[in-house]
Nucleic acid binder design. Structure first.
Lengths: 254, 254
DNA sequence: AGCGCATGGATTGTTCACAATTCTGGAGGC
DNA sequence: GCCTCCAGAATTGTGAACAATCCATGCGCT
């Protein structure tokens, strides 16, 4: 094939900024990606929902081309599915894919917990503070029965731990996996069961602070197993929802 | 334009085909992504190389828009870096990022090896066949001193193992990590040493077949350690400090 | 010289119009 | 009644033109 050797004489190297986290540069796009991502995570956009370019463009007040780019990014993250000439849909994971995602989380989050347990004691003050703050938020959401907040906070909890494990690359990978977990949960959750994970998280925080070797890691594994066990890989949920209604009032500032 | 009420009554479900593997639909795009990715992996495109849209468009005989899309995908995979209004460059990982990538590979590939070791014996015939074929290819490349082939084959080896661990999601994650490893190697490799990994791979295959518990996993960890140890990750990135890079960091995202 | 500043050329970013494909709804034949 | 087939409409895909931005070179001034 044609080799891409058309790069001309090397000029100067750009400083490889580690800054941009998502690879998207414009702030507006990042905002839309996050907005749609969160809508999918807390199930305002259930799996299978058609994401019409023009509707989204209107809802966010941007051009269609930009929506197109956003959808491409989300597709790469497996959060939406692009079908040629048919459009974009909120991804609907297969049971196999759901199991794979949870297995991947098992692997990565176990490693994260092991690193956290190996952290020098006492734990950094900011970690403790953020864990405490987070616990309070989750408790409040549980008290209020705010389901969407609980889902969102649950994801944040896992990401918070990943962040303090000190490997941004792993955190990025886990971010995607958590989003896809949300999709899997939305697709396969049983009607009945609802032992919400706030309790698990509380115990996990306590174990992390007390630092009995292996305890926190074991709790994390149990926690992930428990979440996965609550799924019913036979259920098929289907619904469609009006995009504009969902994004009716989007906060201008992130 | 007035708001054309979209997303009407629920219609029909889109066949949630898992078909498109990469998220890119058109075959041409996938081809270009792979082509550029391989060129980066075996260092025909070293880190920092400017990737001008028009040059690429010409080289591949496609429109600039398509190149643009490809670059966006590669940026999402952290293989190229997009700088607003400046263009696309082959990513140049920092030492920190390189360490993170290798740590992530450690975690994932250890898990993969553990799963492979747990496979029922004797190993599937096709796995054995492909391992043998691959070994022959690597031996040949080593004999011929075909450095590019060796790099490519080394990546394929790890992906081959991942594939037979039976988790496509993990394989996908590892694919990205391997590409980024190639970048890290290209950026930080020491001039001198290069005990190429064909030998490591050979021993690993043997251990996998013989199946002394834990041996293959340990070999994989050693292998990854060895590769990383051959890099010079001491922060010698650049003597002069670029002020623009320091202050150019995103003011927008929290 | 060295520094500041304007201009020219090149490259990226955005918008627009149109082509291609699919979906919808109905007419017609069996 | 049910299926097939065929416009019309809606939606996605593509290319080209236009605007914005940046880099480099040269000129004038201190």
């Amino acid at each position: 094939m044609t080799t891409a050797s058309s790069a001309k004489t090397p000029r100067r190297e750009p400083r490889a900024r580690t800054g941009t986290r998502t690879g998207t540069r414009s702030g507006a796009e990042a905002r839309i990606v996050r907005s749609i991502g969160e809508a999918i995570a807390d199930r305002r956009l259930p799996p299978g929902t058609k994401l019409t370019e023009e509707s989204l463009a209107e809802a966010f007040g941007v051009s269609r081309e930009r929506v197109r780019k956003v959808l491409l990014l989300l597709a790469q993250r497996r959060v939406v599915t692009l079908i040629p000439n048919r459009g974009a849909f909120v991804a609907k994971p297969t049971p196999k894919e759901a199991r794979e995602v949870f297995e991947a989380r098992h692997i990565i989050e176990r490693a994260i917990m092991e690193r956290l347990e190996r952290l020098p004691r006492p734990l950094p003050a900011d970690l403790l503070a953020r864990l405490r703050d987070h616990g309070a938020l989750e408790d409040a959401a549980e008290r209020d029965g705010d389901r969407k907040a609980m889902i969102r906070l649950s994801g944040h909890f896992h990401l918070l731990l990943a962040e303090f494990a000190g490997n941004a690359t792993l955190s990025g990978i886990l971010t995607d996996l958590i989003d896809r977990s949300s999709l899997a949960i939305a697709a396969f959750e049983r009607r009945s069961s609802h032992t919400c994970s706030a309790g698990d998280h509380r115990r996990l925080i306590a174990a992390l602070i007390n630092n009995r070797p292996g305890e926190a890691t074991a709790l994390m594994i149990d926690h992930l197993d428990e979440v996965e066990r609550q799924l019913d890989l036979e259920a098929k949920t289907d619904a469609r929802i009006d995009l504009k209604a969902i994004f009716a009032d989007e906060p201008e500032t992130a």
